[in-house]
Amino acid sequence: MTRVFPFLRPPSDVVSVGPWSRLSPDGTEPLPDTLVDWDYSTTLSLHRPVSVDGLRLRELAGLTEDAAVDLTVQWFATNSLLRGRAWRSALPVENAFDVTIECALPGDDLGGALELITSVTLRSSSPGASPAAPARPGSVLWSDRQRVVLEGENTLFPIATADFHDLPYPTGAGWYLHIDEDLDGAALGSILLLVNERHEVVMRAVRAASAPTEADQRVLSTLRADVLRVLVERALTDEGLQEDVDHPVGSLGALLVSVVRNAFPAFSMEALRRERQNAPALFSSRLQETSQLLVAS
């Protein structure tokens, strides 16, 4: 949905942004889509080059040269829904003004996916501005958003280890994917991958997930494929789950619909339900293919 702003905004080319980079012990690297090695104790050191036409953006937003304008970075964590300011700097009245955003984000309030929202905002207007110009401090003149998934694919699911002897699951099983009933409940907290502490092979692979041996990789591939299978089956066997019904953002229903869409972009859920019912072996092979079961990496 396009947002309608009740004031003049400059064209997007008044700001040029470079890529976000992350400072790590090994040096600087481009910020990937997923941070495999992130956990709550990690402080993310990020930077990004930006060039702003400070004069042109004021003119084209109907502001005078005396207007105070900031470049701001806001963070937003998708699991806690918390947000905060990561960085801010005043933008001078000059074109091609180069600045490097540098910020450090402690892990305490983060989790799930992290959104970094870079904005140009009005700090204060001044007399002589156009009646159509933004007037309220904080008005967003330009913005850009980047999302990075924290916790890599090995820990994207909440994982717990437990002795299956104490749980109502088969004692010899390797894992169990717990999924709650409420489709509108938050996905986080609705899903938990339980790994059986009694199963040495699986436990070894899960522990070695950041540096797996070839044997571990095969186990992890099987585990991932099975998790995908259980999620897809859960989605397809729930008649209450329809792809054209909007489930709340971040809900279990929204997650399941998106899992099925990503796994089978060419099929409707109805078509998948039919195939699962009428040709289960074919459907099973299709799941193997989409989950890249035991495919050499």
Binding site: R3, T72, G84, T121, R136, G138
Partner: peptide, 19 residues
Amino acid sequence: RWGAVVDFESLDDDELRRQ
């Protein structure tokens, strides 16, 4: 409603309190 077009996080404490 204001928050749809205003970034409250960008504001100083005094200005935020004023709004």
